[in-house]
Amino acid sequence: MIAAETVTVRAGDRALLDRVSVEARCGEVLAILGPNGAGKSTLLRALSGEREPDAGRVCMGGRRLSAWTLVERARVRAVVPQESALAFPLSVLDVVLMGRTPHVQRRETVHDEHVGWLALQAVGLSTFATRRYPTLSGGEKQRVHLARALAQIWDARGERYLLLDEPTSGLDIARQHEALSLLRRLAHDLSRTAVAVVLHDLNLAAQYADRILLMRGGQAIACGNPTVVLTEENLRRIFGVEAVIVPHPRAALPLVVPLSGNALAMEKIE
């Protein structure tokens, strides 16, 4: 389990996170939702240790995060960034193998390369291994970084943690569902991986997340099961949108149908 306990993060006078408490439990996918500037990425940065909280604390596996060394963290916890600065002509496989960095002593073993190939396969990019990374499309690059993160924690013992910041923003609809179901399988496999993912698509979150955290203005507003959290009232309060929640036609899931301006006008006329 990776947990934020009343975490506050400030930038100057402004609180980017205001006493946020949330936990990503092993065996579940936690989706973090909220409008732009709600503090989702900051929360992820606090959970990963990239940003030291100004108040409160972050615990991973029951231990304060600051008590872990960087390598110890890296062996069990991977982070997928929103976008990467990588612009040098490395091959896709080389980028994925970077994920093995915390495990490698002197050089990669056959096992490390094996893990790299399996991770590439898991994201459907095994035919891309020798392609140079800068020549890939945005969505392909995102999948490469997902594979890198998978390779990093692939064979970690005990609890594993995966933190992702909008990993689906550049993916087409099929790839979005592939990526999310991959995360869900990863979390549920032996129930020893905690996945925390920042998402924008409410319905994607409803389908794949075990729990949803709704954030606004640096605060955690609601957290829980998708059916409990995704209410018309919450969407109005947090996103400022009018929407109706209808039952999913094929599964016991909520389906969010945002109402356009036109639809609202029609409603009033009627």
């Binding site: 990239e50 960034p81 990467s84 490395l90 970077m98 960095t101 990093q152």
Partner: peptide, 20 residues
Amino acid sequence: SRALNALLLGEADARHLGIE
């Protein structure tokens, strides 16, 4: 060289890979 490779991803990502 391994650290420099990781740094190509950016400093935050390199730290996430355990690089000081």
